[in-house]
Design a protein around this nucleic acid. Sequence first.
DNA 1: GTCGGCTTTGAG
DNA 2: CATCGCTCAAAGCCGAC
Length: 894
Amino acid sequence: MDHSELADILNSDSDHGNVNCEASFLSNLSDDSLIDYVNRFSQEHDKETPLEPPKLLPPKLLPPKQQVVVSHVAAKQGSAAPSAVMTRGNYFVNKRLGQERQDEELKAKYGVRSDIFKNCTIYINGYTKPGRLQLHQEIILNGGKFLHYMSAKGNVTHIVASNLPLKKRLEFSKYKVVKPEWIVDSIAQRSLLPWQDYSIVTNTDDLQKQLPLVKAGRNSNHKNQITECTNPHFLYDYFAHSRLHHLSTWKSNLRAAFLNNYREGNFQLPTKGEPFEAFHIDFDCFFATVGFLHKPKSIVCDFEKDPIVVCHGSGNSDIASCNYVARRYGIKNGMWVKSAQAMLPRDIKLFSLPYNFEEIQKASDIFYEILQSMEWFKTVIPVSIDEAICIMQGSEDFSIETICQEIRKRIFHATDGCTVSIGCAPSLVLARLALKLAKPNGYHIITDDEIANRAKFWQNFNFDDLPGVGRSTVFKLKDYFEGSKNLQDLKKNPRFNLENMKSCIGDKIGTKIFLNLIGKDDDESTRIIFETDKVFERKSISIEINWGIRFQTITEIDNFLDICCTYLLGKMAEFDRLTSQVVMKIMKRASDAPVIAVKYMGMGKCDSFSHTSRLGMPTNDPGIIATELKSMYRILSCPPKELRGLSIQFNKLISPIERNQTVLPFPKIKKGAVENIPQILRREIDNELQRRKIDVPSPIKKISPIKRTRRDELPNTFEQQFLDELPTQIRAEVDNDLRISKKIKKSKIETIKKNIQDRQEIDKNKRLHFKGEDSIFKPIKFQGLNSFKDICNLIINWIIQTINDAGPHKNDVRLFKRYLVKLCDSNRTHLALRIARIISTQLTLSSNKAMDDKQSHIGVQEWDSILINIVIPILNRNKHTDQTKRKLDIEYDI
DNA sequence: GTCGGCTTTGAG
DNA sequence: CATCGCTCAAAGCCGAC
């Protein structure tokens, strides 16, 4: 807690009318900062910390933009841009000559300055400071070579990175990975400096510690034993085996690569408004094919004759992918192995293959390399590891058919046997449907727009073949358009029209599907073609673990939260972003679910709870975020043993530069904020606001008792509000169900009743969760008070009354100590922490006054001693994990 | 009616 | 021997003003 600013203000001693210091402090603030400052008081008030000035951002100067870079970009655009002149022909010429020619142009334009990097081939990973463009230029102009893709990483001599995510550290461990300063300094000193001095990896032991390797984490005695979630290696071990984690990471990497490539200026997005041909290309049962091509020798099976699946286990293991033989028996991806086996005749054996993520990635690299090398495509939009959409505009020398054959042939050979299928059409939706018809191992071209209206075509498809239509939407559609089995039925249904579609499944998706059914894309879908850069921009970062979560104590969970936090911060650093909103969602074992889940280490049936927290200011501080997460977990109040899943999201991402440029959060004065300002400061702030003509909203007449979701919500008020809210919630849902039921036939009423019952059941469970015997949430009384807020007020008054006197009474202190111990023992350390803050603040206030009075009261020393000798030991005694401890140390400056 | 937060949905 | 049920974004819903 930084009290120095506060001290500055208070030293002016407003009681004596000397307002100079305060006035100058306030008058130095920008409008936004002043408003923020005022609003803080309403926040602080709720937090029972009456005085704490906001942390103001230092007025950082933005680094001046490099003249060279600006002109470089301008030059590039100038030479390539005027799109009116740009023809298809020279676009491809530009693309073919590619970067090398651009580099030559660059040299010609600015002249080679030196040959410092003569023997260097340099690759830049992720976001760097200075930026990629600038580094690129400096490398080229100083005699080096620049690599755009790591696919050719065999040739790389150096990798430049500012932040290297843990995973990449391992991947790059054999390379010379340096900080960008190496380049900057080398140029400044006109010679190639030793890279070791700029190595991003400072210490290999350190690396090992930071990067829990899969092998290291495993219990080496038993090859297949899983790492338990209390093991610090659990997260990485788990992710190393999770197909869904791989899918997500691959996807985000592909998007990032696309953006990098695009921002380098290597290609342009297709022209909006012009017709296009979409090639939707997808591997056939990718995981299964790759698994088969690289299968262990011990497994002997025939891909064309035997049903084959890729999975981890035998019984309740998910099938990641199955070949087409298996599909003929009705086996589907995502099914459990057990049920797949049940679909086979007795004499047919199901073959299980292990995952091979490495080979999958290799095949995908080849896939994208081939597609990107094909000059007839304007863009290659990555959809996932095994799926891409290529866009062609204008006419080509080759027929679409020839192109399809060429793609399929080349990928098949380059991957030693992986087949892709291709769907071609002048719209995304038709390309997707064509792909379905093409599978497996084929291609299908829709040339004639008329086909969109031909009955036979639409008969081939189920509702969920349409993009954006899943389980839930299918259910709604089947319900509304009774009797419709395929898309043709739907189109022919007498109730089929735009209005009905909208009211059945919602405005957006309704309109989208209505358009799709005449073969057209909606605007939102085509954004991925024409505004790919915006669509691919990252808006959140999150982590989710819903498998293997079995904790005993809250401390174990705290440790796990630290690991998750570190993981997310690494990801945030990779994208050079700060977060100002954190969301935690937990999965808690449903009260009627067995303690041991059906699926080994699975989550089983769960109730979910979530909590959102505003951090007030964008940050990437591990202390702040980790503490917040632990606090949030306690607010969600799930007994550690009942936890089955955890998810953490960082929202409202901004870049550190943006933070300094844009307005601070809370740009308006909130209602009631001014009322919360302590009298001691009120007058000055009022004056300052008036001087600047900033509006102050009138006080709130009545405070709504319903639903507050602020971070400073206290557990017991939260609980109360939750319970208060229940009846209205149920009522609203019943109303809603009744409203829907008017639309639906009477036979559905039973289902609806069932739904209401289910929801009431969930609500009952939630009620039990907060009130039940297991709840870690029973209020702890202090001096007969239940509410933490009241207790805080009591404590504040107690301090104020005793601090300028002889200090508190011994007996009171004993009771107080007992209360704090109880709080900490019942996993409510965060509440004790708040009380500690109260004491700390009061002490600061008093000691400042005392300094002015030139006398010191015994009470101040007494309270100081209570804080240091009683409160902090109680806080620390409750085993804190490293990050929280650090936070505490910072808070108390001890 | 618009805004913003929270939940649901779908994708691979 | 189990088994690795992620992660992102859009749209809907609901309450506050």
